[in-house]
């Protein structure tokens, strides 16, 4: 949690009469998507969820779960912020998060059992995802409910964005498909007739792409690291202000 104190606390405001969704509110959501992205800039919450990024569909479900937990735990913590005893605030925050995660877990069991099976322990690990607690400590404990909710939403989305992007690259190059396991599964390139580009066929697919093979490195856990490193590289080369000074 030490790092969370270093995060910029966002905009704290004392003005009462403001539009419900003005410019400042919009920044709360858009800022974490890129320039203050939880993963690539804040270095929070890399933990648990990356292990599910070998496919897009589980990454997407995981992202939705994280967004839900992040937004609502911020909301509830902010609502309770003046009543929570300081001495036990970490435990109270953890209990709020754990409750929401349990709800997500039970809901998933009822809504989509196969994906619940696939994600197994990783849903539970959202509890210790530092991004959730990081935002509670850094923002929700000091801001009004609506802004905290938006901040949680924005950070959850920023996190989900990276998760899905990593899943996209890994599945496309590792398995030659997208959204495998979901109703909209698309098999793009591979050595059988099920794929849009059949690398084994006599026709155009085989002639042009006969050399193509899936990159097995992409399905290994380590590939998630490489893909994120490349994202960070591109992002910081694009915007040199973000470069790590140390």
């Amino acid at each position: 949690m030490a790092e969370s104190t270093e995060i910029k606390t966002g905009v704290t405001t004392t003005q009462e009469k403001e539009p419900l969704f003005g410019k400042k509110e919009r920044i709360l959501i858009t800022d974490p998507l890129l320039d203050n992205n939880p993963i690539t800039i804040q270095v929070l919450g890399v933990c648990s969820a990356l292990a599910v990024t070998s496919l897009v569909y589980p990454s997407l479900v995981m992202s939705v779960a994280v967004v839900f937990v992040c937004a609502f735990s911020s909301l509830f913590t902010s609502l309770l912020r003046n009543t929570i005893p300081k001495a036990v605030r970490l435990i109270v925050q953890l209990v709020i998060i754990a409750t929401l995660v349990t709800i997500v877990n039970e809901a998933l069991k009822a809504l989509n059992y196969p994906i619940y099976k696939q994600l197994s322990v990783y849903i539970g690990l959202i509890i210790t995802n530092c991004i959730v607690m990081g935002r509670l400590e850094a923002f929700a404990m000091a801001n009004k409910p609506w802004r905290s909710f938006l901040d949680g939403l924005g950070n959850g989305l920023g996190y989900g964005l990276i998760l899905v992007a990593v899943g996209f690259v890994r599945e496309l190059f590792g398995k030659g498909s997208l959204f495998a396991g979901s109703p909209i599964e698309w098999k793009i390139i591979g050595p059988s007739a099920e794929y849009t580009i059949n690398t084994m066929s006599e026709g155009l697919g085989g002639t042009l792409f006969g050399w193509y093979a899936n990159n097995n490195l992409m399905v290994l856990p380590a590939a998630a690291m490489f893909v994120i490193a490349v994202f960070i590289w591109i992002q910081r080369a694009w915007n040199p202000k973000l470069v790590d000074a140390s």
Binding site: S120, G174, K175, N214, V219, L220
Partner: peptide, 8 residues
Amino acid sequence: HAGETPGL
């Protein structure tokens, strides 16, 4: 399986 490597 509970957790075999996807793709392998």
